[in-house]
Amino acid sequence: MPNDKITGHYSQAYDAELQQVVERLLEMGTLVQQQLADALQAFINGDLSLAQQVVETDRTVNRFEVDIDEQCLEILVRRQPAANDLRLILAVLKSINDVERIGDHAENIAQHLLDATQSDRPQSAQLDDIQQMGQRVSVMLQQALESFEKMDAAAALAVLHQDKAIDSDYDRILRHNLTYMLEDTRQISSGLQITWVARALERIGDHARNICQYSIFMAKGQNVTHLSDEELQQVVDKQRS
């Protein structure tokens, strides 16, 4: 569907090109969301065939990254975008990098299952922890991509704050795991698996947070990396003259 914020250029072909890179990014995002959902499902259910599928999907994700990168490069060379158009292209270029990394983390989750032996299966309480954290990360990723599509800085900021809950989940899972591993050394192998998967989910939360920062940059024209919560709010509240 055409983005109503990318319209009105003298050259409709140019608007179409800009819209297309956003659509392709969202397509890539949808693929990675599915990859993450499948990776979590495979890990929790011990589904080796689904895990294999997740690993193979990564090649498609990588192709998306290269294709969108080339499309952006072509727009930069041929159209020399300025102002919000330039920010859009820069934000897409940065976002595809993060989305691709999310795909890598999903692949890692699946790979941990493929590398483990049957005796290494974590306990159901541990898997519940991962499922809960995975659900939170999936929602955050979905909403981060939506805020990007809408170029909505306020929505992006709200999503960005969700990363704190994900970091808390990660800390909690690490603590639980440590207890399991100290109580029973046979659980070290499965405990490490849980730690790595939780770590991958925590990193996915960070990448979703980055996407939110690019959305704010796109909408407000200010690089908000490394800003405090208060400063972020000020940027988002700033109205154009």
């Binding site: 009105g8 250029h9 003298y10 140019y14 975008p81 300025a82 102002a83 154009r240």
Partner: peptide
């Protein structure tokens, strides 16, 4: 001015959306 113009009319002009 070319990356983050403050005025909508400036933005429209430099991005080719003037008019």
């Amino acid at each position: 001015l070319f990356t983050n113009p403050k005025n909508k009319r400036t933005e429209d002009y430099i991005t080719g959306r003037y008019g």
